[in-house]
């Protein structure tokens, strides 16, 4: 059975990188006693895949991974067993079983929501609400994306589904699919450049609030959290 696990990441563990979080969960699952399935071969590994890597320094309320289990004692027991072996800062929020037709976590990702807060000692972008309004009021939002080998010009606008500012906070919902992923810092750089300022990545705390998948019903595309496609068991 395939199981989707949702967790949050806060506090000092935000400095643990994606690969180390994967290693952390491999060990945590062993400690929890969950009957996870293994690949075959001389060094068997757990059947586990993560939805979207989270950058070092980011917090999250909506991280996901899928695992395959051989047996279980229900989703509540699994959630409790996992939380008993978590470190401070990582909490398992939900455990659901995936239907057979559901795609894997990584391929399912369509969008992600982020909150941006300015850290102590840093000034938020001036006139945040007005700047955001003007920023969005353009037909295109051109940016230059630095890739490993070259520079790529693209328009951010189609990938920004929502962008709001309130009380010196920003929230945005953007494309996070493998083909169109918008890194939060790319959007913030564009916003700062639009305001005629330079973006300092150390000034903000970025929190991924949720990771979404798209449900397609004819013409209609609805974004739902990744665990909405599964059910408790």
């Amino acid at each position: 059975m395939r199981v989707r696990i949702k967790f949050s990441k806060h506090g000092v563990v935000k400095f643990i990188g994606h690969l180390d979080i994967m290693r952390y969960f491999q060990k945590a699952i062993r400690r929890s006693g969950i009957d996870i399935a293994y690949s075959s071969g001389f060094s068997p590994h757990q059947i586990m895949s993560f939805a979207a890597p989270l950058g070092v320094g980011y917090c999250s309320n909506g991280e996901y991974m899928d695992i395959e289990v051989n047996s279980h004692q229900g989703s509540d027991q699994m959630l409790t067993a996992l939380n008993e072996v978590m470190v401070e800062g990582i909490e398992v929020l939900s455990v659901v079983a995936l239907p057979d037709h559901a795609g894997n976590a990584m391929a399912s990702v369509a969008a992600a929501g982020y909150t941006i807060e300015w850290k102590e000692g840093y000034e938020p972008l001036a006139d945040l609400e007005k700047t955001v309004e003007a920023f969005l009021n353009r037909d295109t939002i051109p940016v230059v994306k630095q890739t490993k080998k070259s520079e790529l010009s693209l328009d951010l606008k189609p990938g920004i589904y929502e962008l709001t500012a309130k009380e010196n906070c920003l929230y945005f919902l953007v494309d996070a699919s493998s083909s169109g992923n918008i890194k939060p810092t790319l959007l913030l750089e564009a916003l700062y450049r639009f305001a005629g300022q330079e973006f300092d990545p150390l000034a903000v705390q970025i929190t991924r609030e949720e990771t979404y998948t798209a449900l397609i019903d004819g013409e209609r595309r609805t974004l739902v959290p990744l665990d909405a496609v599964g059910e408790k068991f």
Binding site: V12, V13, F15, I16, D20, K27, V56, V85, V87, G89
Partner: peptide
């Protein structure tokens, strides 16, 4: 955020 492998310095391990 400036140093290599910040997880070396944060403690909090299992």
């Amino acid at each position: 955020m400036q140093v290599e492998k910040p997880a070396r310095y944060i403690g909090n391990e299992v």
